[in-house]
Amino acid sequence: MTSATGPQVGVTLYSFTNEWLSRQFDLPGLLHEVAKRGLGPNIEIIGFQSLKEFPDISDDFAARFKDLIAETGLNPTSLAINSDRFLKPGQQPIDDATLVEYHKRQLRSAAKLGFPVARSQFALPVHLLPEIAPYAEELGIVMGVEVHAPMWAGHPAVQAYGEMYDKLNSPALGWIPDFGGTASRIPASMLDAARRAGAKESLLDMLKEIWLEPGMSHEKAGKLREKALADGHAPAHIQAASLAFFILANNDPKSWAALVDRTVHIHGKFYGVDDDGVEEAIDYETILPLFRDGGFTGTIVSEWEGHAYDTRDAFEQVRRHQAMCRRILAS
């Protein structure tokens, strides 16, 4: 932590996706490892990744989870819930009433496990917020929507949510910024992964040029595909390069200032921190002071998304990221 009154650091278990999928850890083992390495105490858990019973939670599991939290000395900070309409392959999307109830089930589980914040997604239509916010208030839980790349503070969907937030003025609604939406460059590690997949330098040069252009990410991805195919690049190589359009975006890092007042939790997205304590793609020196000086006192969880294409040690990456955040916040 930086101080009792300033932003705190923690970690989302999503950072350890490779370690989880390779069965190096089960949930108790992973939480004990996080605690042993001093990467908490504040933690975020992805409901559908880590909790077998989710979206519902039994009394027995809730009791065992709370015992585990007490054993490790960790602090449940955020539970990530999902806003999917397509719940099972081959089935029709669920209707609005079912989607509302689906969210209520997940919010009940978050509250039952002791999480004060539930991360939601923009797949929840803005017109359903008036039906869910009062229920979250009853539970005493805050539902924060994740502003994830390619979105940023100025995205139309974010603006629409902001208008509804103003209208409802509910203490149960807020923002969860994800810094991948305001990257300044494509991570070198991501470019290296594309090279390993066979992408040529000419394709990566084209990628870097188009990625910096204004416009929506899906449109820029389409432009890259069209130009690259015309130049004879293989579809598989184009696909490897195109990852950059969908998990990070090039928007103004200072734009987060517009969301500080209603920010309830932060995803400190990162792709790699070097030996000098500098993140590969995101300008943390600009972003973190916006929240610190704006009065944010919640948690910034380290979220290493390099696992999508890299096999570096996630625990070491999180350690480096937290050290970087503490240094910047203390400056």
Rank of each mutant, 00 (worst) to 15 (best):
A4H: 09
G10Q: 03
V11I: 05
T12V: 11
S15Y: 01
N18F: 02
S22F: 10
S22L: 03
S22E: 11
R23Y: 05
D26C: 08
L30T: 05
H32L: 02
V34K: 05
V34L: 10
G38S: 11
P41D: 01
I43Y: 09
S50L: 03
S50T: 07
L51Q: 10
E53F: 02
E53N: 05
A62S: 03
A62D: 00
R64Y: 00
D67Q: 08
A70D: 07
L74N: 02
T77M: 09
S78P: 00
N82H: 12
D84K: 09
F86V: 12
P89L: 14
T98S: 14
Y102H: 15
Q106W: 09
S109F: 01
L113H: 00
G114I: 04
G114E: 03
G114Q: 01
A118W: 08
Q121A: 07
Q121Y: 05
F122W: 01
V126E: 13
L129Q: 03
A136C: 05
L139A: 12
L139F: 05
V142L: 06
M143H: 02
V145Y: 15
V145D: 05
G154S: 12
V158K: 00
A160Q: 11
E163R: 12
M164V: 14
Y165R: 10
D166E: 15
A172Q: 00
L173H: 03
W175Q: 02
I176V: 13
S184R: 13
A188N: 09
M190T: 08
M190L: 14
D192T: 08
R195G: 11
R195L: 06
R196D: 13
A199Q: 07
E201V: 09
L203I: 11
L203V: 04
L203E: 12
L203N: 04
I210L: 01
L212Q: 12
S217T: 06
R225Y: 00
E226A: 08
A230C: 05
A240D: 03
S242P: 03
L248K: 05
N251M: 01
P253G: 14
K254W: 06
S255T: 09
A257E: 14
A257L: 13
V260R: 10
I266S: 00
K269H: 10
Y271N: 05
G272T: 03
D276W: 10
G277V: 09
E279T: 06
E285A: 15
T286G: 08
G298D: 01
T299R: 13
T299E: 09
V301L: 08
S302N: 06
S302L: 05
A308K: 12
Y309N: 06
D310C: 14
F315W: 09
E316V: 08
V318Y: 08
Q322S: 11
A323D: 12
I328Y: 10
